[in-house]
Computed example of a mutant assay.
Amino acid sequence: QPESEVRESEFLFLPVTNLGAELRWNQIRVFSSWLDKWIPRKKPLVAQKKPIKVFLKAGKTYKWCVCGRSKNQPFCDASHLFQATGLFPLRFKVEEDRSAFLCACKATSKPPYCDGTHKSNRVQNAQEGSSL
């Protein structure tokens, strides 16, 4: 299925390879249609309208909240399970200690990192806790 035909609600971003401290992202992973029958996917919520600066330690695996419902933003606290969102956290690892700005609006095109999308009118006009 060409990328342009994939609906936004059908994907989860996955890291492929580390190059230095930066992650490259694979194509999207489409879930099987049978999973949708059991756990329909909800849209991510805008957790907040600005990124969150964090310090990431080399070699540690982090779980970035994709659903926007975690009380431990920008990291997952398993709220996606209790609220049956059908969304799952993005696991990532960095190769060196560093600071980073992680997306909290959940609209970035470079998850889990902020790409400035939060500055758009679309995000700024949205209510925190609502979907885009």
Rank of each mutant, 00 (worst) to 15 (best):
Q27K: 15
P112D: 06
E5S: 11
R7E: 12
N72E: 10
L132S: 09
K50L: 13
R98K: 14
E128T: 11
E128W: 01
Y113F: 13
P40S: 02
N18D: 10
K71M: 08
N125E: 14
Q83S: 09
L19R: 06
F13A: 10
E128Q: 09
W38H: 14
A58C: 02
E3R: 12
L35Q: 03
K106G: 07
R41G: 08
L81V: 11
P89F: 07
F92G: 03
G116R: 00
A126S: 15
G86A: 10
S9G: 12
R7P: 11
K57Q: 10
K119R: 15
D77E: 04
F92Y: 01
A47L: 04
P2Q: 00
E3A: 15
V123I: 15
C103W: 01
C114I: 06
R98G: 12
C76P: 07
F92E: 03
G20F: 07
G86C: 11
S109M: 09
A47W: 05
D115I: 05
A21L: 06
V94A: 08
V123R: 04
W25Y: 13
P74W: 02
V123L: 03
T61M: 07
C65D: 06
C105E: 02
L56D: 03
P112K: 04
R98P: 09
S120V: 01
S70M: 01
R29C: 15
K119N: 14
D77R: 01
S130Q: 08
K63Y: 15
G86Y: 08
R69S: 06
F31A: 11
K60P: 06
Q124I: 09
I28M: 13
K93S: 11
S130C: 10
D97I: 02
V30R: 13
Q1Y: 13
A104P: 08
P111K: 00
N18L: 13
I39Y: 11
W64R: 07
N121C: 05
A47I: 02
P2C: 00
P15W: 04
C114S: 10
G116I: 00
K119S: 11
S32T: 12
A47S: 14
Q83E: 13
V6W: 02
Q127W: 09
P89S: 09
K119I: 09
P74M: 03
F11L: 14
C65A: 04
W25K: 13
P74L: 05
A58D: 00
L90D: 05
I28N: 13
